[in-house]
Design a protein around this nucleic acid. Sequence first.
RNA 1: GGCCCGUUCGUCUAGUGGUUAGGACUCCAGGUUUUCAUCCUGGCAACAGGAGUUCGAUUCUCCUACGGGCUACCA
Length: 467
Amino acid sequence: MNPVVRFAPSPTGKLHIGGVRTALFNYLFAKRHDGKFLVRIEDTDKERSKAEHTAQILESLKWLGLAYDEEPIAQSSRSKRYNEVIESLLKSGKAYRCFATNEELRGLRDNNKIFLYPSIWRDRKKEDIDKKLKDNTPFTIRLRIPEEGVVSFKDEVYGTITTKISELDDFIIARSDGSPTYNLTVVIDDNDMNISHVIRGEDHISNTPKQILIYNALGWDLPIFGHLPMILGSDGKRLSKRHGAVGTKTFKNMGYLPESLINYIALLGWNPGNNDEVFDIDYLINNFSIQNVNKKAAVFDLTKLDWVSSHKIIAKKSSELLELINDFDSSWSSNNRNNDFLVKVIRLIKDRLKTLSDAKNHSYFFKDPTGFDENALKKCWKEDTGGILDQFLSKLKKLDEWNVKIIDDLIRQCVEELSIGMGKLMQPLRLALAGDLIGPSMPELMEILGKEVCSKRLENILEFKQS
RNA sequence: GGCCCGUUCGUCUAGUGGUUAGGACUCCAGGUUUUCAUCCUGGCAACAGGAGUUCGAUUCUCCUACGGGCUACCA
């Protein structure tokens, strides 16, 4: 049977890295086994759930390329079904009404160190219950769990996990306003959506026994469970706003490609069983195995993301990369729209980019340098530099052909004639043309800039040094 | 307080009852380059601690420590 899995975020915030990983692994599992990948919006917390977050989450999934196979389902649309189930549980005696107040229970916890619900209303006389009902006393509904025994399940990642029922209590499945709680809705929806494999964060391991008890009370078949280890911030704490980049959108805005993020996140808690580290989504689909997921929480490391990112960028065709960069930041080229020119530029700067946003650091292709850094000048501008550049400039002006070879020859010829080292010419030349001492190959840069621009910029720096 | 889960270089990880404990990122050194980046070569760097089982434990068991999770009328 083909598996059905789901990603079930609660729309109480942006899609964060942990969510991306859960979504990704569900997606990969589904694709690997020709199954279905579904999305369910868990918006039963009316206060904290926001439509804008739902929109944002779906948009992020789209950006990442994690396409779901059916329209997402929102839990807010399923109250009727939840009520039915609650009713039936009540009728069969698998659940019961509890009239204990919040304060009462909190008192028990704080004062008497009673952490499990002491079954106050579990076996009350009918008269007591009827009286409360008649008085319209608010009540919650609790699951009547077995008296003893254990709940045990085989987790695809963590192995067999066994919990004594004595560690559990008759937990609440419906609040006093009648709304169902998380553990109930998850079970109902996973059942109704025919979810075969529940793959979710490790923070749900402790919920699983409770959910199994609900499955049992309802007489439903259990899905297979697989829990994924957490992703932590660099301080080893759970990922949060404090760590800066948590929302998927932030990574997009920083200029990371979706495939970079996917590639990097796949490596967190999983590996293909060989030394491959840079791969695409198809490779992931073909090699993914939930058995290869490890149990240890992983720390999110931006440095390695950068490394993956630069690999992905270098692997792109220049024309394709140009489109991506234009989409990312149309102003990077100072509104230069000459496509042939821009592709050449990209080719030169490609392996210097960690992210799409780095492209804007190469504005010298489009604008004359606006100033010269003190330190850079001090470093490369010597007594004789003005003269050298002057000579170079006049030779350059006499050229009637303009290409890498010619320019390269000119440079070589010039240093030879003057009996100087390459750097004596190259460094100030670079400073004049690019405003910096680092950058792409000089002849290639010059070819792209063109003879006029190069002459002008050389004149500029000579003038600047004169004044 | 209770219960559950985890612990291999700084980080991501591989691995085995006997290995020089492997790879990747970062960092450092060297090479290539006019420079930077890329690329190549080399280097630094780890089995949380203690008992037990064993001829032998990083590997198996237990304990401790540390980290995380759950213990909500959050999800």
